[in-house]
Design a protein around this nucleic acid. Sequence first.
RNA 1: GGAGAGGUGGCUGAGCGGUUGAAAGCACCGCACUCGAAAUGCGGCAUACCCGUAAGGGUAUCGGGGGUUCGAAUCCCCCCCUCUCCGCCA
Length: 426
Amino acid sequence: MHDVRAIRLDPMAFDQGMARRGLPPVSEAILALDHARREAQTVLQEAQARRKQVAALIGKAKGAGDAAAAESHLAEAEALKDVIAAQTAAESDLAARLNALLAGLPNLPGATTPDGAGEGDNVEVRRWGQLWDNGPRRDHADLGAALGLMDFETAARLAGSRFVVLKGPLARLERALGQFMLDMQTTEHGYTEVSPPLLVRGQALYGTGQLPKFEEDLFHTTDDRWLIPTAEVSLTNLVAGELLDEGVLPLRMTALTPCFRAEAGASGRDTKGMIRQHQFNKVEMVSIVAPERSDEELERMTACAEAILKRLELPFRTMALCTGDLGFSARKTYDLEVWVASQGAYREISSCSNCGDFQARRMEARCRAPGEKGGRFVHTLNGSGLAVGRALVAVMEHYQDEDGAIAIPQALHAYLPGLSRITPAA
RNA sequence: GGAGAGGUGGCUGAGCGGUUGAAAGCACCGCACUCGAAAUGCGGCAUACCCGUAAGGGUAUCGGGGGUUCGAAUCCCCCCCUCUCCGCCA
């Protein structure tokens, strides 16, 4: 959510920010609504002030037992009633329209976010790891099917397309990956483990920015709840409506949860394999920080995600998303892209974003230093650390051998006692 | 799911149709006392928005939304949440 006063103060800067995202200027429409709303509010408030005075006079007169005096004010009070009703309706209509307009606008890109039109303009920040170059690599779906441990057909019978059934050691490997990531974030990176709700109210999704604009990407339940598309929603909304003592910041939280995405509009993309599913597991990191700390926190968080890939010895590159590829709530984002051998391409496995005060405004999440008056909106960050399903894909493809067996990364040995390779016989 | 009790400022907690944005306590800030601290005393201390260059003025907010009334924290309706008991259940 944007601060109207900031837009009022510098509409050009706002339009320029939107333009960097490839969006048309809107400040004029916003300010017109804002102006009309304030005018309506002023008129309303004057009427309310008068009503208050008159009501007090009536109360005073009645208290004094002067029925005639009370009666003399009633006519004006009656008249004010209609004025106030009409003016309230006008004001709230304008406020609702202004709010709807603002709620649908994405965050302004940060100063250090590179400009660009789309994915192709993202900027590589760094690259890590050696790409193997010893012949063609089979993709994880073929490997999994050959092992008899990854079954898309049965999953489709149960649930439809974009679901998978993992079995035996492969299911165990997936579980180990999640555990490993979660343990690293909690024991090495200082994140507090949280086990949050997977179903949330619309309010929570509004807070993080998925609603109202991206309803079609979400699963909605019959009792008007929503399946979380990421634990970012649950974790970030933990501080919704809170006034936090600045001493408790930064709050760093992590969770391993299933994520549910309708993937509307993605038909035809990544239809094979586990890259794009309706349900997948992910370890999420969320940081709640004081406003002046969010830039450094983004670097830190990104490093926490990178550390997982390094430990798994999976080659990756870190991309700074350009303005055209930036998510709705983010002002700056780093994507981690892991090497997917079968595709000969880097694919997103983590996305770490600084949302500034954008989500905090929607959630009403503030902080304040002891003795300070009022409060400031906190800054919120979220990042995957990492997407477990895609990590499984990367491990399978990276650690396969010519016989179709999968070696277990060193980092996971402690989590998989007795399992050093997944072989077709297994 | 059924029955009941509640949701008031950063926290605890009074108020239960009129001058109550809201008693009191705690916390916090300032001042006094003190070598200093504690204790004590005095004072201050909600948020959002609107008008105003400012000083200042105004409006709204007592879980959320409607309603009754000249006037609602107080009355009515709907919703959300918490607690107690019963039922059901991994």
